[in-house]
Simulated assay, not measured.
Amino acid sequence: MNFNTTFAEFPKEVKLLIGAFLIVLSVGYFTGFRFVNETTENTPTGIQENYLGNEDDLEAKVMKFKKPKREMLTIIHTHILSMSVIFFILGGLVSFAKLPAWLKKSLMLEPLLSVLLTFGGIYLMWSGYHFMRYVVMISGILMTTSFILSVVIVFLQLFKRNKAEI
């Protein structure tokens, strides 16, 4: 799975465009990550309460109610579409990186699988399969780890100096 072209062969302007894209993409991704932390406290219970509510918890600091079906479908629809495009583009960039084949394939495919597991898991949890909150959390961690690794690898290889340039 090797292309003949690598980041070293890209024109400087294209490297700058990709670098700027990675920075803006990361700001957007981690803003969303911050929102998830605010709404779920990054815990399985917080994830469940965010979608199923916590009306039964009389000691809850913030009262939350079960999300209606239309809102759930909108959340799942928009996130699966947008995140699949994000990880398709990022996977395309990873394809130009010099990496072992197994790592390259993992970074290209794992986040797409995690998108399905995370948002499919959210819907299943909302539908009554409460154990899916753990699948959602684990797949979210894997998706974020893949995102960070992919961005760091692409960014480092994008601006790595060739020995011929020195």
Rank of each mutant, 00 (worst) to 15 (best):
V154D: 04
F3Q: 15
L156D: 04
M72A: 03
P111K: 00
Q157D: 08
I18H: 01
L25V: 02
F10T: 09
V27P: 05
N2F: 14
Y134G: 03
T145H: 01
Y29F: 05
I75A: 13
E165I: 08
Y51D: 12
S114Y: 01
R70H: 13
N162T: 15
I18V: 11
K12W: 07
K163S: 07
P111G: 00
A20W: 09
Q157M: 11
L124N: 00
T118A: 06
T78R: 11
M108I: 14
F131T: 07
L113S: 07
K61Q: 09
N54F: 04
L149Q: 06
K98R: 10
L81Q: 08
T74K: 14
S127E: 04
Y129Q: 04
K104F: 07
G46I: 05
L117T: 01
R161W: 00
L149I: 11
R70N: 13
K61I: 13
T145K: 01
L142G: 02
F21R: 13
P111A: 03
Y51I: 08
I166N: 12
F88Y: 08
N37E: 13
R133L: 02
E59A: 11
V85N: 09
E110M: 10
I18C: 09
T78K: 00
I166Q: 06
L103K: 10
N37A: 10
K105C: 06
S150Y: 04
S82M: 06
H77D: 06
L16S: 00
V85T: 11
T39R: 01
T45V: 13
G46L: 08
F33Q: 12
T39C: 01
